[in-house]
Structures are given as C-alpha cells and as structure tokens.
C-alpha cells in the first residue's frame, strides 16, 4: 500500500464518527467573507494607512501623480542609493528625475543573486494596500517584477495609488484571488524586515530590505 493510501485509510478510520454529509453542512462557518472594515473611529482610510505603515518605521510620502518622478528621485537620495534595479514592466517615465542613479532594467536572463546583491535599491509598483494593518501586497505582475528583485537590494521604493488602498484584510484577499489563480506568487509587506527574537524587543532590518520607502500617489499613477 502506498504511503498516501495508508494515511488516507488511517484518516477515514479516525473519522468514523463524522456523518457522511457535505462539509459545509456539517460545520457551518459563522462568518461573512470579503466585508469592508469600519475604520471610521480611526480616521480617513488613507490617513489610517499612512499612520500604520509609519508605525512599522517605514517612510511614507504622499504626492500628486505629476510629482511622482521627483518623489522617486527623492526616495533614492534619502535612502542613499546610487544604483537601482527596476522590473521591465515599470513605466520608464517614473525614473526621469533621478539623475545620478544607475538604473538596471531587468530583462531575460535574470540577474544572479550575487549581482542583485551589489545593487543598492529597487523601485516597483504594488497591487493592494491594506489600511487597517499598514500592509502593501505585491502580486508580482510586470511592474513589480519577480520576488527576488524586491528582496535582495537593501532599499525598496514602492509606489501605491490611493485607489489601491482598501480598508482591511478581507477586501484585500478578495482582490488578490485572480492573481493567485493566474499562478502568480504574493508578497505581503508590512514595514521593513524586522525581528523580535532577542528578548522580544523589535529591531528593524535583518535579511529583507532594511529601508521601506512608500510613495502614496493621489491618483492612480
């Protein structure tokens, strides 16, 4: 007997007491999925988003769409980056104001981990923002690039549009399902890399980018 059929047999024997009815009828789940979270007590949704991203010690700036190239140049300067990698799908106009920064647009074949490790920063768009938790989700579509791009360089400049920010986790999960069904991975980012492993005191900056610089654009960029 294969390991699988042996385990399945053990499970069926273990569950002999369970009636043979559909799972959803056997155990109802008292929860309505995909609802918006009421943040009215905390403030306006974008303000809550900014406050909670900053709570993780990330930097957040807000700007009108027309000023985005300047905001990106400022972000690279503020984090001390002189080189940056960008995914192939990123709008090249966004980089037009960053004089003096050496940009690498990643095409095939991909950069090796060691090559990525020699680049200071990465600039990407994003998929969804979650106000209640201060989370930014990447669905790794063309303007966000593969996962390693936003991981190995030490500074992540990430752009999010005001209309991409939702109230809470339930709305975000509902929006992200199509990307998962398309086979794309997701990365949820809440602040820079951190650890609480030493005496449970929080320290920012371990293996992931130690600087998270968020640009919230008034209209969709």
């Amino acid at each position: 007997m294969s390991a699988k059929s042996e385990i399945m047999q053990r499970i069926r024997t273990a569950l002999e007491d369970v009636p043979d009815i559909p799972a959803v009828d056997d155990v109802p789940v008292p929860w309505e999925f995909g609802r918006a979270v009421d943040l009215s007590a905390a403030g306006e949704i974008l303000d809550v988003f900014v406050e909670r991203v900053e709570d993780y010690h990330a930097t957040v700036v807000r700007c009108p769409a027309a000023d985005l190239p300047v905001a990106i140049a400022d972000g690279l300067r503020a984090t001390g980056a002189t080189s940056a990698v960008v995914p192939e799908g990123l709008n090249p106009d966004w980089l037009s104001a960053a004089d003096g920064v050496r940009f690498t647009v990643e095409t095939m074949p991909h950069l090796s981990p060691h090559e990525l490790n020699r680049i200071d920063a990465v600039v990407t768009a994003s998929a969804v923002g979650v106000a209640e938790t201060g989370t930014i989700v990447l669905d790794h579509s063309a303007d966000q690039g593969r996962r390693a791009l936003t991981l190995v360089p030490d500074r992540h400049i990430v752009v999010i549009g005001a209309d991409q920010v939702v109230s809470g986790v339930p709305e975000a999960v509902a929006l992200l399902r199509p990307a998962v069904e398309a086979g794309r991975p997701l990365t949820w980012i809440s602040g820079p890399s951190a650890t609480s492993d030493i005496e449970l005191s929080r320290v920012e900056g371990v293996h992931g980018p130690r600087h998270l610089y968020v640009i919230l654009v008034q209209e969709r960029p």
Partner: peptide
Amino acid sequence: STAERMNPYTSIWSGASEGDG
C-alpha cells in the same frame, strides 16, 4: 503570535511560478 497588526512578510506561492523562484 508576535502581537502585531501584521507580521512584516508573508509569502504565498502556488507550485512553480514561471520565471520567479
């Protein structure tokens, strides 16, 4: 667990993703 609104990183992957990982 860590008593945060959200942990810094969550990775979700579905098998092998072409050109990524």
